[in-house]
Design a protein around this nucleic acid. Structure first.
Length: 436
DNA sequence: TCTGGGGTCCTAGGACCC
DNA sequence: TCTGGGGTCCTAGGACCC
């Protein structure tokens, strides 16, 4: 029940339908209604499917080579992905949404959460606001969206799913306006795996306990879910009950890591080729570092064999090297990365993937030294010192002398310290909704 | 050296998301 | 033959300190 005089939080989730496919269609209208997919790097697998292809039962991530027969049979067209285009279209959608409310969280390239209770007075009801947003985006960008509305982010997500799946909602579903009995009916018909945050593993474990539908999960006490699965699932339970636990993140938090990695078209065994690939990823990563003005504290490189070939010898290995502000020195980074590669590389394996990861620092180091400078270690970060020791051991005396200076902590460290690790939700909301 | 509880730091790994 | 890339959060457990 809404409390009198106090507007309850209301979230809307605006999500573009089949985003990459819809972007391609905006610029090639003849593709409208054509069965089509957009493919990942190397044209490996389908990362977006049109409604027609989904109807054929093709799952997200299906390898293109596995759907050749189906493609011929139904005339499925495949497009290589064009992320520059998608990024541009995404920005246009966000611009439209900002006209409606400044309280907006850009959640992903094709999804945004909005807080709408503050702007409702100009509309007959939340649903008509949703319809207005939907039409505006269509008129401005050509993209089709669905809007889900609810008292929590999780309910807005669920409503969005209903809006996408069931035509009678006409693309906009307000879960807070559906009569209880009817909402429970929808929840009974919707598998629990559709709930935001319930992935494959949790789905399996819940099924084992006869929790099959969203409604089943709604009926379980959040406390018992916390005991079994931790705070994440507990939050989900509360959210389903309309108790908002996840706030809008209007300011995107600073990144904690930067990754650059790619699968190889063909497996790679030679050290020289891996080195070339690693060098490329270092350059890409360094470019990202500079463009977002981040400072890295450590560099991890990794190489992996093909996990889809379990009968071939497997080798997954990574090595992490602490660094001191080498953000603008790609040569230094590359040198360190290649030395690391020498340590983890083993001949005789068919490598399928290689990449580089940078851990970012929350603060600029107080002293900036190059990787090879011989300076006294006076930082307090034990893990960096430990990693440095192991590097020195492996590379022999004085080959790499890493400087660790000033006070440094990763963004993650800082977040852990400053956030409430284990929030306590009071039990006042534990009462079950009245059923039937 | 033994006893020991509580707190913090760190890492690895699992699970999830789009 | 051919199977994406880039992220986040949480937990358990060991090391270490007082």
């Amino acid at each position: 029940m809404n409390q009198v005089g106090q507007a309850k939080q209301l979230f809307a989730l605006v999500d573009v339908n089949n985003f990459y496919v819809s972007c391609e269609r905006v610029f090639a209208p003849k593709l409208e209604d054509a069965p089509m997919v957009v493919l990942s790097n190397n044209d490996g697998c389908a990362v977006a499917r049109s409604a027609e292809v989904k109807a054929l039962g093709v799952k997200m991530g299906t390898p293109w080579f596995q759907m050749q027969d189906l493609a011929k049979q139904h005339g499925i067209q495949a497009y290589s992905s064009n992320y520059t285009l998608y990024g541009d279209m995404s920005a246009r959608v966000v611009e439209v949404l900002k006209k409606f409310t400044p309280n907006l969280e850009v959640y992903s390239i094709d999804e945004s959460f909005l807080r709408i209770e503050t702007v409702l007075k100009q509309y007959a009801d939340p649903t008509s606001l949703g319809q207005t947003i939907k039409q505006d985006i269509k008129d401005t960008t050509g993209l089709p969206v669905c809007v889900g509305i609810g008292a929590s982010k999780t309910l807005a997500k669920l409503a969005n799913h209903l809006a996408k799946k069931h035509p009678q909602f006409a693309g906009v579903c307000d879960s807070s306006a559906i009569p209880k009995a009817e909402l429970y009916q929808w929840m009974t018909e919707t598998p629990v795996a559709e709930v935001w945050g319930i992935g494959r593993q949790l789905n399996k474990k819940l099924k084992a306990q006869q929790v099959n539908s969203v409604f089943d999960l709604l009926q379980i006490s959040p406390q018992s879910m916390r005991q079994q699965f931790g705070v994440v699932v507990e939050r989900i339970c509360y959210e389903l009950r309309g108790v908002s636990c996840l706030e809008l993140e209007e300011v995107a938090p600073a990144k904690q890591q930067i990754v650059s990695s790619r699968s190889f078209g063909k497996p790679v065994s030679a050290m020289e080729q891996l080195a070339e690939s690693i060098a490329t990823h270092v350059a890409r990563g360094a470019e990202k570092l500079r463009s977002q003005k981040s400072v890295t504290g450590a560099l991890t490189i990794f190489i992996q064999t093909n996990p889809h070939k379990p009968f071939e010898p497997q080798h997954h290995q990574s090595v992490t090297m602490p660094l001191t502000d080498p953000s603008d020195n790609t040569l230094t980074l590359t040198g360190a990365a290649l030395k690391g590669l020498q340590q983890i590389y083993q001949s005789g394996f068919k490598y399928k993937k290689a990449g580089v990861m940078f851990n970012l620092l929350a603060d600029k180091p107080t002293v900036q030294q190059s990787l090879f400078d011989d300076v006294e270690v006076k930082g307090k970060s034990a893990h960096l010192m430990k990693a440095m020791d192991s590097i020195n051991n492996r590379f022999g005396n004085g080959v790499i002398r890493t400087a660790v200076s000033g006070t440094k902590e990763t963004k993650r460290d800082w977040k852990m310290r400053s956030s409430n690790k284990s929030p306590n939700y009071t039990t006042q909301w534990d009462e079950l909704p009245v059923v039937r």
